[in-house]
Simulated assay, not measured.
Amino acid sequence: MANITLGGNPIETSGNLPSVGSKAPDFKLTATDLSTKSLTDYNGSRLILNIFPSVDTGTCAQSVRTFNEKASQLENTKVLCISKDLPFALARFCGAEGLDNVETLSDFKTGDFGNDYGITFKTGPLETLLSRCIVVIEKDGTISHSEQVAEIKDEPNYTAALDALK
């Protein structure tokens, strides 16, 4: 389990992020059109998984905006913004913000993604939501960078994630 805090108070997660150099676990997530997306749908592309508790919080919303801005500059790279928010809320947010360089996906149906990646909160006020994390996956499915943000209110290290793609 990772050492995560919310306002300095410890929160337990279901495990730990997959390690750099390992193969990314497959997933089934729900897109805004309610279709199911899996890792194999992105074969041949590099991926940034921007994972967060809810797009309805300031830090989470900012991470989606920041990656939307940066994604337009990345070659053969898709940014997947993943939470347990309903697909309708994710679509509404991106539509209202004019964000079209990221794809939003939801783990609301089963929670398997959060458990398989070891990032579901098991304790605290955000119990069952996803921890703030960044995972960079190369075209061959290998993880080249991962970050689980230690204080959930903090933003991820965007530069480190983007540098992993250079």
Results as ranks from 00 to 15, higher is better:
Gly95Gln: 02
Thr40Cys: 03
Ala96Tyr: 04
Lys122Pro: 00
Lys78Ser: 12
Val55Gln: 11
Ser106Ala: 06
Leu47Val: 12
Thr77Ala: 10
Ser144Glu: 00
Ala96Pro: 00
Glu75His: 15
Asp33Gly: 13
Leu74Asn: 10
Val64Trp: 11
Gly98Ile: 13
Cys133Thr: 12
Thr104Gln: 05
Val64Gln: 13
Asp107Trp: 03
Ser45Gly: 04
Leu34Tyr: 14
Ser106Gln: 07
Ser72Lys: 12
Thr57Leu: 09
Lys109Pro: 00
Ala61Thr: 06
Lys84Pro: 07
Pro156Thr: 11
Glu138Trp: 04
Thr77Val: 14
Glu151Trp: 09
Pro87His: 00
Asp154Lys: 11
Leu126His: 05
Asn50Ala: 13
Ser131Asn: 07
Leu74Met: 10
Tyr117Asn: 10
Ile152Asn: 10
Leu86His: 06
Val79Trp: 07
Ala91Pro: 02
Phe67Leu: 12
Asn76Glu: 10
Ile137Gly: 11
Tyr42Glu: 04
Pro53Gly: 15
Pro125Cys: 00
Phe121Gln: 01
Thr123Val: 11
Asn115Trp: 04
Pro87Glu: 03
Ile134Lys: 03
Ile152Thr: 15
Leu74Asp: 07
Leu105His: 02
Ser63Phe: 01
Asn115Tyr: 01
Val55Met: 07
Phe121Ala: 13
Leu34His: 10
Ile119Ser: 01
Cys60Phe: 01
Asp154Val: 05
Thr159Ser: 12
His145Leu: 13
Asp107Gln: 00
Ser131Cys: 15
Lys109Val: 15
Ser144Leu: 03
Phe27Pro: 04
Gly111Val: 09
Thr123Gly: 09
Val135Leu: 01
Cys81Gly: 01
Val64Asn: 12
Asn115His: 11
Asn76Trp: 06
Glu75Gln: 13
Glu97Asp: 10
Pro125Ser: 14
Gly118Ala: 06
